[in-house]
């Protein structure tokens, strides 16, 4: 009896360990929070061009990714860390996991506002938080600013996702940095009072809810809107039929953006490859793939925004707020908690 168990143990062990041991001369190891197909396309393209094998560990939650790099200390296998949201890049830099990028190519390609002031990380692509609304029930001037979502006229009509999600946490952090704690409190209480339903679902769910008439206004990400507008699926297009978008706060601080970025780790064993990859990502080719495959805004001025979004104009972006996100997030979450925004 025991013999049989041992045999089956050994048998299945062999099967599983046979699969995972691949070594290559030139390689690059990346920890990333991004799980998009665009990233796979980029990695494959880079591999083809340079012969450097790109190995990826993807950990969706930035705080967890950071925890792993931190715990692994100098034995970490990560050469490059890529994460969504500037707040996370800021925290990673604070924790001391990066080394200076030291790349002229990056400095030339990426505007200074989208790079770390100490040269530890660079932005790679952007999404804009914008306001989607029901064309038939809401006028665009009613939702020109984020602040307008707290107006009494929109009572019972506003849709948002949970503040458990980093999108809302970062948005609140920039709000806090721009207008102060009291303003954020008043605003988030106002939004909470205006809600059409309990905060829930993802960005696409908010758009679906507008289409279904559950509410009339929602904060959503440009990436999802662009994807729906560009979809080959007729149901997706149908969804957007009565919906339009505005880039908020165009006359003041600009629309809140969410920046993905990356930095080379302090203990990188393939730092040169990591630099080469970042340079590739901010090159014209790389940026075009970001714009077309994942419908993100490029960080280079000379690469066009995703075509479907261009129809809605060139947004003014709140780049000043970016640097504040990391520092202000805990306090902002506290305010959201107190306001009752789940």
């Amino acid at each position: 009896m025991l013999k049989r168990i041992i045999i089956s143990l050994l048998g299945s062990a062999v099967v599983s360990f046979a699969a995972h041991s691949e070594t290559s001369k030139k390689s690059l190891n990346i920890y990333t929070t991004r799980h998009y197909e665009a990233d796979v396309t980029l990695a494959k393209d880079f591999e083809k061009k340079t012969g450097i094998a790109v190995n990826i560990v993807q950990i969706k939650e930035p705080a967890q990714l950071l925890a792993r790099v931190l715990e692994e200390k100098n034995s970490t296998q990560a050469d490059l860390v890529i994460t969504t949201d500037v707040g996370n890049l800021w925290r990673a830099a604070e924790a001391g996991i990066f080394q200076p990028l030291a790349s002229e190519a990056i400095n030339k390609a990426v505007p200074a506002a989208l790079r770390d002031s100490n040269g530890l990380w660079t932005g790679l692509a952007m999404r804009v938080r914008l306001i989607a609304y029901n064309k038939e029930k809401v006028k665009p001037e009613q939702v020109a600013r984020l602040e307008d979502l707290a107006a009494p006229a929109l009572k019972g009509r506003v849709l948002v996702r949970s503040s458990n999600h980093v999108y809302n946490q970062s948005l609140a952090a920039t709000f806090l940095a721009a207008s102060g704690r009291d303003a954020l409190m008043i605003w988030s209480k106002g939004v909470t009072a205006n809600l059409a339903r309990k905060p829930q679902g993802g960005d696409t769910d908010q758009i679906k809810a507008i289409a279904a008439g559950e509410g009339d206004v929602a904060i959503v990400n440009s990436y999802y809107v662009a994807r729906l507008l560009d979809s080959k699926n007729s149901a997706d297009k149908e969804l957007m039929k009565n919906i339009s978008i505005v880039f908020p706060n165009q006359k003041d601080r600009g629309a809140h953006v969410n920046v993905s970025g990356g930095g080379i780790t302090r203990h990188a064993k393939n730092a040169a490859h990591a630099r080469q990859y970042l340079e590739y990502l901010v090159s014209k080719e790389g940026q075009e793939i970001f714009a077309s495959a994942s419908k993100e805004y490029p960080v280079r001025a000379d690469v066009a925004a995703p075509a479907v979004l261009k129809a809605y104009g060139e947004p003014k972006l709140d780049l000043k707020g970016l640097s504040a996100i990391g520092n202000f997030t805990p306090e902002a979450v506290k305010v959201l908690d107190e306001a009752g925004w789940r």
């Binding site: 939650e61 930035p62 705080a63 925890a67 925290r91 503040s163 458990n164 980093v166 946490q169 997030t329 805990p330 979450v333 506290k334």
Partner: peptide, 10 residues
């Protein structure tokens, strides 16, 4: 998770 990811309080 909110403590960890939101407040950064591991």
């Amino acid at each position: 998770y909110r403590s960890w990811f939101g407040y950064g309080d591991r």
